[in-house]
């Protein structure tokens, strides 16, 4: 049977978000800053006014990083009635940060995630796990959101959002439902043993053929992802004196988050903000600080 493109569902596709605080009058602000996080899978733009979050837009990264950055920012601009000229300073971050043509400065996503998490959770956050589209970072930070230690793995897609998208497509279940479905099982299966996403996909297929339910295969994959990420975070250690926070798209998958918590013996704190905006938010806050420094120098 031939399936047309129109019939083929994109199970991997996650919901894109755009939000603007309509009660905020940005025209009265002293400093309007933006952070653009062009990741390997998603791009986010955050606009801050005087160091407070005005709005954000999270969208899929295309094959053209400057275009992805522009689309991400346009979402906030359109909704807030702002133009690019109204933004005083822009910081680019993420995998595609060097391709943000309108950025005044670029910073690594490691520093930006820590700063963003500090805003999203508060000064109590000390350990941060960013589960991005194609990499994973374990970060320790201080009460100001300054990085004290970091480790990242961007060589292997195991433990990343892209890996979960692959499983969503294989199972033909929307990626947003995978987490909940991974708990709808009679008993916890052994984790998928392959460390590589490509082989894990083959192993998952084998499990289906062996009679495992889809939910059980998803549970096995979520457990494998949690185990890999925990091995990574244990190399930097979880600071017992502070909060543990997870950012990135996988933070929205309870199937992985709960299993990470179980393995680490630590509960992750929650934030009212979208977990995917941490990097862009941190970049916008860095932009605000840089503007303040410039003003202080000029005075």
């Amino acid at each position: 049977m031939v399936v047309s493109l129109a019939e083929k569902k994109e199970y991997w596709r996650w919901a894109e978000h755009c939000w603007v605080d309509e009660t905020c009058d940005w025209r009265a602000a002293q400093r309007v800053t933006a952070g653009i996080d062009v990741g390997s899978v998603s791009s986010q733009a955050v606009v801050c006014v005087d160091g407070k979050l005005l709005g954000y837009h999270s969208t899929r990264t295309g094959n053209d990083s400057p275009d992805s950055a522009r689309r991400a920012l346009d979402g906030v601009l359109d909704k807030s009635g702002m133009t690019l000229a109204d933004i005083h300073y822009i910081v680019g971050t993420g995998y595609g940060r060097v391709n943000v043509p309108f950025a005044h400065k670029t910073l690594t996503e490691i520093a930006c995630h820590a700063r963003g998490a500090n805003y999203m959770v508060g000064p109590t956050v000390r350990t941060l796990l960013d589960m991005g589209g194609q990499d994973c970072k374990a970060i320790r930070c201080d009460e100001r959101g300054k990085v004290t230690q970091f480790l990242m793995n961007d060589k292997c897609a195991a433990g990343t959002g892209r890996g979960m998208e692959v499983i969503a497509d294989l199972m033909q279940i929307p990626v947003s439902e995978l987490g909940a479905r991974s708990f709808d099982i009679d008993a916890e299966p052994p984790a998928v043993s392959s460390i590589c996403v490509v082989f894990a996909k083959s192993e998952a297929l084998g499990m289906l053929k062996a009679g495992y339910t889809k939910n059980k295969v998803i549970a096995a994959y979520c457990q494998a992802m949690a185990e890999r990420v925990v091995a990574l975070i244990e190399r930097v250690g979880v600071d017992p004196a502070g909060d543990f926070f997870i950012t990135g798209g996988i933070a929205k998958n309870p199937g992985v988050v709960k299993r990470i918590e179980r393995l680490l013996g630590v509960n992750a704190v929650h934030s009212p903000w979208d977990s995917q905006i941490a990097g862009a938010l941190g970049a916008a806050l860095f932009a605000h600080t840089l503007l303040q420094k410039q003003a202080a120098k000029a005075a």
Binding site: R140, V147, T148, Q149, F150, L151, M152, N153, D154, K155, C156, I195, C196, R228, A231, L232, R235, V236
Partner: peptide
């Protein structure tokens, strides 16, 4: 800051 550069793959973990 403690910076760990490297990777972990099927053969092991390699960080400086």
């Amino acid at each position: 800051m403690i910076a760990n550069y490297g990777y972990q793959d099927g053969s092991g973990a390699y960080y400086i």
